[in-house]
Design a binder for these strands. Structure first.
Lengths: 209, 209
DNA sequence: ACAAGAAGTGAAGTATGATTCATTCCTTGA
DNA sequence: TCAAGGAATGAATCATACTTCACTTCTTGT
């Protein structure tokens, strides 16, 4: 026996893994899934393509891990808001605001994962992610309905609508890349207001019926 | 000179074109963009792959045309509602209701046109489509704000949010494939209510600020 | 310093699917 | 009926990207 992983080596391996994940995240944040081919990720990480496969079974596996990690952080933050103090309305507003602000400014660009699917395997993971995001809003809605802040409504539908609304507003044609900070703040506020109104009681029962 | 297109032939050519478009639409409606390879479209239309290229410059071209045609019809319907009689609220509700109900007939079609990633060329066309959809809602919003039915708001953001909300609710994890008609009706109603509330004046100014 | 074995390389191997084109089949006007 | 030329075919070609693997380089324990 003439080789066994030393602590130093172990550390290097772990750091390689990290570098791959970071490189993939960077590329996806910049140019989306499309731009993040294995060859590009390898180049960005400063290693060979074959190396990637020493650390990840497949491209799909790699991206699922990138996505999961990025979203885990978002979910943590959102859950903290959801379980925090304040009225349901205030928490809903804060949750949407937080997510959209981070998506617009933060380097993680978590929303890229919500908006841009790819292989079936990744799609499945993405659906789970969306559900998790939806669940946060559902939790807030549930409380709000119980306390009477919000009218009774289909919480699944409302949660999906909220996720869809801010996603589209963030990545849709309305949101150009390099906007001024002032516009961004306005956009964040508009989206958050929209979502809060959407689940609140209107002055008189909605238009039809 | 021994050959010139007869009326009969002209007609056949046009019918071929139609068949290709119809075949592509059918495949996209069934399995999304992913399932609609040129070979599959050709088979579905009962002709050879080469034939497709006699009528369309490229795959992207073909799909842009399918999408444009399908959405043109939707826009017609939506515009009729938007310009029709009734309060802004009632028209907004009717517009969302109409679109979602029609979309549930072929959910993948809606998804493919609105969300599924494709070639850059198709993406560009899709952005235009989204803007056009958003414009319909913007028009209704504008009137509603003028008449005082809706509070002042960023119409671009609201329109994008509306489009995103019903899209996500339709094709997201919340909307399973083969639901009962009763559930569908409930979903349509929930989504429409959500959108109307979202742009209407809440009883007291929204949570924060 | 050495060799055993792991880490790392990147060009070749595959897979998928769009596009082309040499060839065949049809239509048309004489 | 015939031949000129367009319509149609589909196997071959091209393009793109993921994945593998024979080979090289590096680490480690003796």
């Amino acid at each position: 026996m003439a080789y066994r992983r030393s602590a130093l080596m172990e550390e290097r391996l772990a750091s390689n893994r990290e570098r791959i994940l970071a490189a993939a995240r960077r590329l996806i944040a910049e140019g989306g899934y499309r731009e993040a081919q294995i060859a590009a990720v390898a180049a960005e990480a400063g290693m060979s393509t074959g190396m990637i496969y020493r650390y990840f079974r497949s491209k799909a596996d790699l991206f699922i891990e990138v996505m999961t990690a990025a979203i885990a952080r978002e979910l943590e933050i959102l859950n903290e808001i959801a379980e925090g103090p304040g009225t349901a309305k205030a928490r809903l507003y804060a949750a949407v605001e937080s997510f959209t602000r981070r998506a617009l400014t933060g380097p993680n660009l978590a929303y890229a994962f919500i908006a841009e699917p790819a292989e079936p395997e990744v799609d499945i993971a993405r659906i789970r992610v969306r559900q998790q995001l939806g669940n946060v809003f559902k939790a807030i809605l549930k409380e709000g309905i119980t306390t009477g802040e919000f009218p009774a409504q289909d919480m699944d539908a409302s949660a999906a609508c909220i996720v869809g609304a801010y996603t589209e507003a963030l990545v849709g044609p309305i949101a150009p890349k390099g906007q001024r900070v002032k516009d961004q703040e306005r956009l964040i506020q508009s989206i958050s207001d929209f979502c809060v109104r959407a689940v609140s009681q209107p002055i008189n029962p909605s238009g039809k019926r």
